[in-house]
């Protein structure tokens, strides 16, 4: 997929530049783009480390486990077929909490662990179970208490109030996840 998008963008840019007479600017943009990618990475690196460092403290101190208990009512509603004290459920909860904390790196391995447990409960069938689909849907809506990468990016580009977007992000995430869950619940009865 990225092959076509990336290749297509560059080819299209060159083709368009021939028509708009901006070949020189387009060529300059290629080198400027490469340079600015590195600049951005360096300006982000420090703040990125701050958040991943804090997330590790959260993991070790058991703040994550504490949230698992808080989430039980919601997880029961979303995954009616998963028993509340099963390994699958605890893996799901760990992944949700890691996502909430914005721990992208830790969330992915935990998510893989959860999907493996769900796969086991589904007797290793090659078709995704309803619970597996639901798990993916809630993962793709990205509900985070603190969208750390985003905030640090806003900060490094000189935002007057980097955290201003936090509440809107919460609201939109919740609306998006509710929409996804509703569509999944409707479609799960139709696709077998």
């Amino acid at each position: 997929m990225m092959n076509y998008i990336w290749g297509g963008m560059i080819l299209l840019s060159f083709a368009v530049s021939l028509f708009t007479g901006r070949v020189e600017e387009t060529a300059a943009a290629a080198t400027a783009g490469a340079a600015s990618a590195i600049e951005s990475c360096i300006s982000l690196l420090g703040i990125m480390c701050l958040w991943t460092g804090l997330a590790k403290i959260g993991e070790k101190s058991g703040i994550i486990n504490f949230f698992s208990h808080l989430l039980r009512p919601i997880t029961k509603l979303l995954f009616p077929n998963v028993k509340s004290n099963s390994p699958a459920m605890s893996a799901i909860v760990m992944n949700i909490v890691a996502n909430l904390m914005g721990m992208g790196n830790a969330a992915t391995p935990l998510g893989i662990n959860a999907i493996k447990e769900l796969h086991k409960e589904n007797k290793y069938r090659p078709d995704a179970s309803n619970d597996m689909c639901m798990f993916i849907v809630i993962n793709t809506a990205s509900i985070q208490l603190l969208p750390a990468t985003l905030i640090s990016m806003r900060q490094s580009f000189g935002s007057a109030n980097p955290g201003e977007v936090i509440v809107p992000v919460w609201i939109v995430s919740i609306i998006a996840v509710v929409a996804g869950v509703i569509v999944a619940k409707i479609l799960e009865k139709r696709t077998l």
Binding site: H119, D127, I136, A179
Partner: peptide, 24 residues
Amino acid sequence: YFGAVGIKNTRHTIPSALSADLTG
């Protein structure tokens, strides 16, 4: 996630997840 466990049929996952994205 599905690659990790070798799911062949994703069923309603893609339409549901994309509805969440579009809404967002």
